[in-house]
Simulated assay, not measured.
Amino acid sequence: METAYVLVKSQVAHEMDVMGELLKIDNVKEARGTFGVYDIFVKVEAKTSKELEDTITKNIRKVKHVISTTTLSVIPEQDKN
Results as ranks from 00 to 15, higher is better:
Thr48Cys: 12
Lys29Gln: 04
Thr70Ser: 14
Ile75Gly: 03
Val18Ser: 06
Glu2Gly: 11
Leu52Trp: 03
Thr70Asn: 15
Ala13Pro: 08
Ile40Thr: 01
Lys9Tyr: 07
Val74Arg: 11
Thr57Tyr: 13
Ala31Asn: 00
Val18Ala: 06
Pro76Thr: 06
Glu77Lys: 15
Ile75Gln: 09
Glu53Asp: 15
His14Phe: 09
Met19Asp: 00
Glu15Leu: 14
Glu2Leu: 09
Val63Tyr: 05
Leu23Gly: 00
Arg32Gln: 05
Val44Arg: 05
Thr57Leu: 14
Val66Glu: 00
Leu23Phe: 02
Thr3Met: 04
Asp17Trp: 13
Val18Tyr: 01
Lys24Val: 12
Met19Asn: 07
Asp39Thr: 01
Ala4Arg: 01
Asn59Asp: 15
Ala31Phe: 00
Glu30Lys: 07
Val6Asp: 00
Gly36Gln: 03
Lys58Ile: 05
Thr3Leu: 06
Asn59Leu: 12
Lys64Asn: 15
Thr34Trp: 00
Lys50Gly: 11
Tyr5Lys: 04
Lys50Met: 10
Val66Ser: 07
Ser68Ile: 15
Ala31Arg: 01
Val6Thr: 09
Glu77Ile: 14
Asn27Arg: 12
Val28Thr: 07
Val8Ala: 01
Val28Tyr: 07
Ser49Gly: 13
Lys50Gln: 11
Leu22Phe: 05
Arg32Pro: 03
Phe41Tyr: 05
Asn27Thr: 11
Gln78Glu: 08
Lys50Thr: 10
Val18His: 02
Asp39Ser: 07
Glu45Tyr: 03
Val8Tyr: 00
Val42Arg: 04
Ser73Val: 12
Asp39Phe: 03
Thr70Gln: 14
Asn27Leu: 04
Gly20Val: 04
Asp17Lys: 15
Arg61Asn: 09
Asp54Tyr: 13
Ala46Ile: 04
Met19Phe: 02
Lys47Cys: 07
Thr57Asp: 11
Lys9Trp: 08
Ile40Lys: 03
Arg61His: 08
Leu52Ile: 08
Gly36Tyr: 02
Val66Phe: 01
Val8Glu: 00
Val74Gly: 05
Asn27Gly: 08
Lys47Leu: 12
Leu23Trp: 06
Ile67Ser: 09
Glu2Phe: 07
Tyr5Gln: 03
Ser49Ile: 06
Asn81Gln: 13
Ile67Arg: 12
Glu51Arg: 14
Lys29Pro: 01
Val42Leu: 02
Val44Ser: 09
Thr34Tyr: 00
Phe35Met: 12
Glu77Val: 14
Arg61Ala: 07
Val37Ala: 05
Glu51Cys: 13
Arg61Asp: 04
Met1Val: 10
Val28Asp: 10
Leu7Arg: 12
Val63Ala: 11
Leu7His: 11
Glu30Asn: 11
Lys47Ile: 08
